[in-house]
Design a protein around this nucleic acid. Structure first.
Length: 335
DNA sequence: AAAAACTGCAACCGCCAGATA
DNA sequence: CTATCTGGCGGTTGCAGTTTT
């Protein structure tokens, strides 16, 4: 025998809410505020369960709800957030003021999903649907599917075609291809000396937080400022992300010049370049030329701050793990 | 004009985690 | 420590309105 819902057990009303019921609930919450939902129906004079009252308030009666169609901006935000978060509607809704998880879920299921399919994009993976899935699957294996982080061919910050060709997938890791036409030193330089886009700049720009003493938890208070562009980093499932790591190819035993002008050999200490500061990059997330990387424990290097950008140079490339994640612009996920 | 199919959305269901007794 | 309660969440259902046949 199936379970009975709380409403059936208590012989309470179900189905659509009448205007009178709405009025009672609205008046009660306006006067006493949101508290213990289980006691609301009794005090408000409603023949409903507390859960039903809560849902009605959250999805319909709340005064801060935005009504009407989703804007183009909201639509794009939902698509981007879904690519990163998957069906975590509550987390997605947290980034769209005035929208409820239910509303977004319905919009996704009735509209966006179909739109993506029409465009030949798999709504689950956000990847193009093709017959030649064999090769693509290998790339996807590189990520933990549970993590909801997916590669995106239409990434606004894509891995360059040249770099893509230079690597192959091995044991879930991203390895340098021996057949690559790209010079090893060139790849190393690409990784080690390109300007990197730093997730901190959004915070710095707004609050002047010192990036060296940066703590990802500090982002939380600024969520409201960036709620239209930043998902809630604090609520990510970091364990899943950790499983999606792939060790970067070690370039360090190949000598060669780099734009640092200093030695980049393994286990050597780079002398400090002019204008640079020494720094330990442990656990920091960066984007290096379109590739998301996380610095390993003990990763030491130096950095220089520019407007919204950092030049980062590290002593040892193997100190980085490479990630491919959602392509959501300006967003990096701290492990 | 009527029936069938489709669509959008409000609401429910069942599960889970945390709080409390 | 265990049982129960409660709120929160994602998946699903069912209804009402609209479109198509």
């Amino acid at each position: 025998m199936g379970r009975h819902s709380c409403c059936v057990k208590q012989k309470l009303r179900k189905g659509l809410w009448s205007p009178e019921e709405d009025d009672k609930l609205l008046k009660y919450i306006t006067r006493f505020g949101v508290g213990c939902w289980s006691s609301v129906p009794k005090h408000a004079g409603l023949q409903r369960c507390g859960k039903s009252c809560r849902l009605r308030w959250i999805n319909y009666l709340r005064p801060d709800l935005k009504r009407g169609m989703f804007s183009q901006q909201e639509e794009e935000l939902i698509l981007n957030l879904h690519q990163v978060l998957g069906n975590r509607w509550a987390q997605i809704a947290a980034q769209l003021p005035g929208r409820t998880d239910n509303e977004i879920k319905n919009f996704w299921n009735s509209c966006l999903k179909k739109k993506l399919i029409k465009q030949g994009i798999d709504p689950n993976t956000h990847k193009p649907i093709t017959d030649n899935d064999d090769v693509k699957d290998k790339k996807i294996e590189f990520f933990d599917k549970k993590s909801n982080f997916f590669p995106n061919s239409s990434s606004s910050m894509p891995m360059t075609a040249e770099l893509e060709q230079a690597f192959h997938i091995n044991n879930g890791g991203l390895m340098l291809s021996s057949s690559s036409s790209m010079e090893t030193s060139s790849i190393r330089d690409t990784f080690l000396t390109k300007s990197v886009c730093d997730p901190l700049f959004l915070v710095e720009f707004q609050s002047g937080i010192d990036p060296i003493s940066y703590n990802s938890n500090l982002l939380a208070p600024y969520q409201t400022t960036y709620e239209t562009s930043l998902p809630n980093l604090a609520s990510f499932d970091h364990r899943c992300t950790a499983a999606a790591t792939a060790t970067a190819t070690d370039f360090s035993d190949h000598s060669g010049s780099s734009t640092t002008g200093n030695s980049s050999n393994m286990n050597t200490t780079r002398s400090l370049s002019a204008g640079f500061e020494q720094m330990t990059f442990e656990g920091e997330m960066f984007q290096l030329n379109g590739v998301n990387v996380k610095s390993e424990e003990g990763c030491v290097g130096q950095w220089q701050h520019h407007m919204h950008m950092h030049d980062v140079q590290v002593n040892n490339a193997s100190d980085f793990n490479i990630y491919q994640m959602g392509s959501y612009p300006d967003v990096f996920h701290q492990i």
